[in-house]
Amino acid sequence: MIEFRSVGKQFDDGTRAVSDFNLVVPSHATVVLVGSSGSGKTTLLRSINRMVEPTEGQILIDDVDVATQNPVELRRSIGYVMQHAGLLPHRKVIDNVATVLRLCGIPKKRALDRSAEVLGTVGLDSSLYTKYPSQLSGGQRQRVGVARGLANDPNILLMDEPFGAVDPIVRAELQTEMLRLQRELEKTTVFVTHDIEEAFALGDQVVILKKGGEVAQIGTPQEILADPADDFVRSFVGLERGQRTLRIEEKDGQRIVVDEYGRPAGVLQ
């Protein structure tokens, strides 16, 4: 369980990213922080493994304040997946995944075996294990990034727009993969994105953030769609633009689902 208690962050240059943020992320659940740029979502995520030090409030992991822990040890115990994967360009794929294990002092042989196992879990072809990151496609790199985050079998997984830089088809594929991994591994996951569709697809809980880390609404995707808290949320999730109000039209004997503007959204079966 991760708990944010009145967390605030003001950067050295005086910009305020977040103020008085409260949230509980239950164990084994996926919570998605979603918001536009400047909403403080990444700052909040990075406060969990002390990549950012909050200026106010506390963050607790299983009732232990992270501020009392050694940041380097803390980071090794938490999986972290970032946009563009952030792989080390001078290490082969499998060595990238083994990084954290080796940092924790696990013998090389065991670290590599475990890495191969996790790479298998995320569905990367074994012929790619000995390639360098630059030889992989964006989607493959992202799988390696996820595998690296999972290698140490952490309880917590932090994901910072991990699928933000890949094309829509690969993105959908990775999201499906992510849902499968979540069912199998049940990590406590905090996921940051600016894409509300992605948030609804992956989140057990979705936190919609306004500017400066102000919470607009917290809830399951169903709750948010059924009962948006205010106009900001309504607009953010697309209810105002009419993309979410669907109706059925008959065309050539097929029943087609269209949105408010008559743009086809799918086929009803």
């Binding site: 493994n49 040890e73 803390l74 980071r75 972290y80 970032m82 994967a85 360009p89 990084t99 940092l103």
Partner: peptide, 11 residues
Amino acid sequence: MVLDSATACGY
């Protein structure tokens, strides 16, 4: 970004 990622991994 690579340095940031290394720090996040616990270097």
